[in-house]
Each structure stands twice: as structure tokens, then as C-alpha cells.
Nucleic acid binder design. Structure first.
Lengths: 121, 121
DNA sequence: CCGCATCCATTTTGATACTG
DNA sequence: CAGTATCAAAATGGATGCGG
């Protein structure tokens, strides 16, 4: 059964809603997807995700870490190397996120064509 | 192949990024999911999606309509009935979105437990 | 009443500089 | 390098107004 009742994410106060807001946020999906192939360091992530600010990267990562979807690792070198990696739970999530992103990538042209039909010009 | 190069959604200027920002927005996933079972009128949608404002519902719906993912139908009665429905393209998308939402609903408790481990208290 | 558009207060996001 | 502090810009929500 596919969560079609009033509960779950449709309920403003349900905890799942919090998770949704972290994951299906402007940057959440991109970060999760970027980490699919393995750990990445802070600046590597920033460079991979076009347009993200350091502030939002930092903030979104912190949320994902709190949610147990991403793990933060610090190697005590100088300068310290901090890398981020999906947890097993995050890995599950990443599969679904990637499917969504792949579909969007696949259909982007078609959708853009639809846009030009709905917008004047 | 699963879109792992620098192109697509990771490129700030790629059209797919626009679509992602509409779909993976705070309300986009919920609207798409809510419409999965059939057409809904404006207020029905608002009531279904806890916490959404009429303004954001209206705005997000307009984006999804522009993207060709949702169709807007006006019955010329008094008062007019305006209903929203997924297009075939939107239906494809909804499948992926629903998978994501279902996973989040399923794992919400586990994730909340993880949060309490990462946050003081 | 229904489906929005508009105005304004609050929240979120972004650019840039700065620190350990 | 890996962030945080700060301030400006943009997104958001609530209230309200309005034509049908």
C-alpha cells in the first residue's frame, strides 16, 4: 500500500514531514545524489553541485547528518580533511532520489518544450 | 547508466535543474503525490496538504502546469470548478515521487531516532 | 462561496569576508 | 581546507480583497 491516507507526509506535524523537507529541499536531492559514488570532501561537493553556496551546503549537510543519512568523517591531519559519505540508510534513500533525478534528466527536453507551449513567446 | 557525470541536474544552467527545483521544492512532491489518485479541486488539495498556504499552492501548481506535469481544468459553472490532474508525463513522475515518499514514511521513525542521537537531549 | 492576486511581516537563501 | 559571521536579496505565509 502506497501511503494514500491522510497520515504521513501530508500531516504537517508528522516527523516524516521534517525528513521530506530535508531531502526534497532545493539542495538535498543533489547532495544525496552526489554522494552516491562514494565519499566526497566539502569543497569537492561544492564544486560538483553547481550554484550551491557554502552556507547552504554546510547547513543541508548538517541536517542530513542529523537525520542519519550522511556520515561526517574528520581525519586529524593539518589541515583536517573532512569527508561526507552516505550511511546504509542514506544509500537506500539515494536509490529513490537517483531514479527521480534520472527521470527528470531524461524528460527535461520534453518538459521544456511543454513550458514553451504554456508561456507566451 | 545513471547520470553520474557533471551534466544534467548538477549543472546550474541545465534546464533539468529548473524542473528539479519545481518538483523537489517544499510543496512540489506533496502536490504531485496528492494528485496520483485522480483530479482534485483547489480547496481539496489545500485541505489534503497540511500546512500549505493558498499562495504557495497556487504558485507551485502554476509551475507544474507550465512544465506540462499537471493539467488545469475549469468547468464554467457558478461558482467555477477548477480541478487539477496529472498529465501522462506527470503520472510517470508521480511514480518516482511516491516511491521516495513511501520510503521516507517507512523510515521516518528510524530517522527520528538517529536525530535524537545526534542532537543533545 | 471559489479560486486566486496583492500587500506586508517573517523566514530562508545567497555573496562575501573572515577565522582556526 | 573547512567551515562560520554578516549583511543583502529572495522566497514564503497570512491576511485581505475581488470578480464571478
Amino acid at each position: 500500500m502506497t501511503a494514500q491516507n491522510g497520515a504521513g507526509v501530508f500531516d504537517e506535524d508528522c516527523p516524516s514531514r521534517l525528513v521530506l523537507n530535508h531531502v526534497a529541499s532545493r539542495w538535498g536531492t543533489l547532495i544525496v545524489s552526489a554522494l552516491r559514488q562514494g565519499p566526497l570532501r566539502f569543497h569537492a561537493l561544492r564544486d560538483r553541485i553547481g550554484g550551491i553556496s557554502e552556507k547552504m551546503l554546510s547547513q543541508t549537510l548538517r541536517q542530513l547528518v542529523e537525520d542519519g543519512l550522511v556520515e561526517r568523517t574528520v581525519e586529524p591531519t593539518t589541515p583536517p580533511r573532512v569527508s561526507y559519505e552516505l550511511t546504509p540508510l542514506g544509500g537506500e534513500l539515494a536509490g529513490h532520489v537517483q531514479a527521480l533525478l534520472d527521470w527528470i534528466t531524461l524528460r527535461a527536453d520534453e518538459i521544456v518544450a511543454a513550458r514553451s507551449r504554456h508561456r507566451p513567446g
